[in-house]
């Protein structure tokens, strides 16, 4: 039982980090990123490929984070001058391009076969079940990222982000370089996703392009909306809640006489229903502020 809880706790922590990156972009700055998973993939594959190529794990991981941030900038430069919706289109396209490259460039990524056999942080030094260590490592990282993000969003820098979210015309009228802030946010959000990607690789021990389908992006969106966008604490709670819906419905298997495919479909329906009902009662998300909902532009 404890192993199971650690295992689902681990994946929850990784997704919480992943969603914190999205929350910086959407929750605080109003950027619609529908391709967040692309940066998760870049983080994961860069870490694994460099490590397999003989680089020390820490360097590989750092390179994964930096490269994810770099691609965030590359995607942002041509699109962020346009209105918000274009970013949504470009990012979802970008994440699919990343996935298809990973799938088809066999010489580099072994395509659908995926990659396995790579180092994990301190693996040789851990005398007990490695998952416990990875769990600890993930949650310490989550805590650090959370604290840094909280400092950022409560600073004058964060205030500029919120003003861009509310109305970027005002931000420029007050002398703020809106484009530069959006780029910074996209770099940072993508780098966080890249870090989550490395953790995901450590957790799975085997990565392949199927891990990086667009649905993963929307799990992050569900977490952000469930927890309350623009609230970092809410994101962490939202990640646990989604995991609770997700794993909780698995227990149904013991009570209902369906075969596994039917069961899988039923679960998705129940999860959807739970999300809809939750949103009806708490449209602002678990820790979102209700009074903010009515405040349109």
């Amino acid at each position: 039982m404890i192993e199971y809880l650690v295992a689902i706790g681990l994946i929850t922590g990784i997704f919480a980090i992943f969603a914190l990156g999205l929350n910086l972009e959407w929750g605080f700055t109003g950027l619609i990123n529908f391709g967040h998973v692309g940066f998760l993939a870049i983080g994961a594959y860069t870490t694994v490929l460099l490590n397999q190529g003989g680089f020390p794990l820490w360097i590989s991981m750092a390179a994964g984070v930096v490269l994810a941030g770099f691609f965030g900038m590359l995607v942002g430069i041509p699109t962020l001058k346009l209105k918000a919706d274009y970013l949504a289109i470009v990012t979802i396209g970008f994440s699919e391009i990343v996935r298809l490259i990973l799938l088809n460039e066999d010489w580099l990524t072994r395509g659908p076969m995926g990659l396995h056999g790579f180092d994990r942080p301190f693996e040789a030094l851990i005398p007990f079940d490695y998952n416990y260590f990875l769990f600890l490592f993930t949650f310490v990282s989550l805590a650090v990222i959370y604290i840094l993000l909280e400092q950022l969003v409560h600073s004058p820098w964060g205030r500029v982000l919120k003003s861009i979210r509310e109305d970027e015309d005002v931000a420029s009228a007050l002398g703020k370089n809106v484009f530069s802030y959006k780029i910074q946010v996209l770099i940072l959000g993508s780098a966080i996703a890249g870090f989550a990607g490395a953790l995901l690789a450590f957790n799975l021990q085997y990565i392949n392009p199927r891990n990086f389908i667009p649905m993963e992006t929307f799990y992050a969106w569900i977490i952000v909306v469930l927890g309350g966008s623009g609230n970092n604490k809410g994101i962490i709670v939202g990640a646990f809640m989604l995991q609770f819906f997700y794993s909780g419905t698995r227990l149904l298997q013991d009570f209902i006489m369906f075969d596994s495919t039917q069961m899988a479909s039923l679960r998705i329906m129940i999860i959807g229903l739970l999300l809809v009902v939750f949103m009806m009662y708490k449209p602002q998300g678990l820790l979102g502020k209700k009074e903010e909902l009515g405040l349109g532009r």
Partner: peptide
């Protein structure tokens, strides 16, 4: 163009230029 989901004070504090914290 009020920055709706920011407090009145935050709206004001956004103003000054050359803020180090930006």
């Amino acid at each position: 163009k009020a920055l709706s989901r920011m407090t009145v004070l935050d709206n004001m504090m956004l103003g000054p230029k050359g803020q180090s914290g930006e």
